[in-house]
């Protein structure tokens, strides 16, 4: 099998996360043939059986590469929230004028499936190493990877109390009691609406979940759900406050919920169409 990795508008974190698996991943890739990667000196895009593509499409060069990858690859895995949703760069790019022979930068970065057919999606910023490796193996060997249909809370060691916090804080950390749910500490943790699989690494270390793995299956399951409405619901049920009060608290914090996915209409349309078979990560 020929395997490739491509970095479009990527920070390099997804590739680094994959390589963090260590020798196992190198042995695996060596057993196959790595036809394209930023780690090897291949300058032309050659056909591959499986390609892991990191990053969204942010400029004309990304678009050109994406089109070539799409033509030359049998199965494409969109790896990382930038590839799946456009990620943080979807908020807007720097359109500098008067540049010579440089790629034309688009107004916003967009997800990969706006210009290619995706076999599997692995959201996360970056996705955990073991998930990328497992999905890659599944794609190469032709079996179905594990589907992470639970939320971050399912793997979190903290427990909710249904008690309202004394005050709310926009801080992303600062919780003295390591057993108590971060929402009960008055912090806006997105664990209840976010896809799990990351071992709740951030909340377990006292930092709020900022939703980098994107909406959970429940949020994506029907039109009546959205990240915002579901979060209001969980905020209310975790702390015992009325949902209209929860809504007031969240009124000017809308952007906290959509750092990686921009808006519901943005996150909804594509992933939901492909549910439930291919949204594995």
């Amino acid at each position: 099998m020929y395997i490739s990795t491509f970095e479009l508008n990527s920070c390099g974190g997804c590739l680094e996360s994959l390589l963090d698996v260590g020798e196992r991943v190198l042995n695996y890739l060596s057993k196959h043939e790595v036809s394209n990667s930023s780690l090897v000196d291949a300058s032309n895009i050659v056909p591959s059986d499986v390609a892991l593509v990191f990053g969204g499409i942010a400029d004309s060069e990304d678009e050109k590469i994406a089109e070539e990858v799409s033509r030359a690859t049998r199965k494409i895995i969109a790896c990382g929230s930038c590839a799946v949703y456009g990620g943080i760069p979807a908020f807007g790019l720097n359109l500098r004028a008067g540049l010579e022979d440089l790629p034309r930068v688009f107004e916003n970065a967009r997800p990969l499936d706006t210009c290619m057919t995706i076999e599997y999606y692995i959201p996360g910023c970056p996705p955990p190493s073991h998930i990328i490796f497992e999905v890659l193996k599944a794609c190469v060997e032709g079996y179905s990877p594990i589907r992470f249909d639970f939320t971050v809370c399912a793997e979190c060691g903290r427990r909710p109390t249904r008690k309202a916090p004394k005050s709310w804080s926009c801080s992303t950390g600062g919780a003295p009691d390591m057993d108590l749910c971060l929402i009960n500490h008055g912090l806006f943790c997105m664990g209840p609406v976010t896809r799990g699989g990351c071992h709740a690494a951030c909340p377990n270390k006292g930092a709020v979940c900022i939703g980098c793995r994107g909406p959970s299956d429940v949020v994506l399951s029907s039109e009546i759900h959205s990240v915002y409405s579901d979060f209001i619901h969980y905020l209310s049920s975790t702390t015992g406050i009325r949902s209209e009060n929860a809504e007031k608290i969240m009124k000017d914090k809308y952007e906290f919920l959509y750092l990686f996915t921009r808006r519901d209409h943005f996150t909804r349309i594509r992933p939901r169409e492909k549910m439930p078979s291919d949204f594995v990560g």
Binding site: D20, T172, G173, G174, A175, M178, C202, G206, A207, C212
Partner: peptide
């Protein structure tokens, strides 16, 4: 990579 450990005011744990 990209942990939330450091935030304005200190560290999370």
């Amino acid at each position: 990579i990209h942990s939330g450990f450091s935030f304005p005011g200190g560290v999370s744990s």
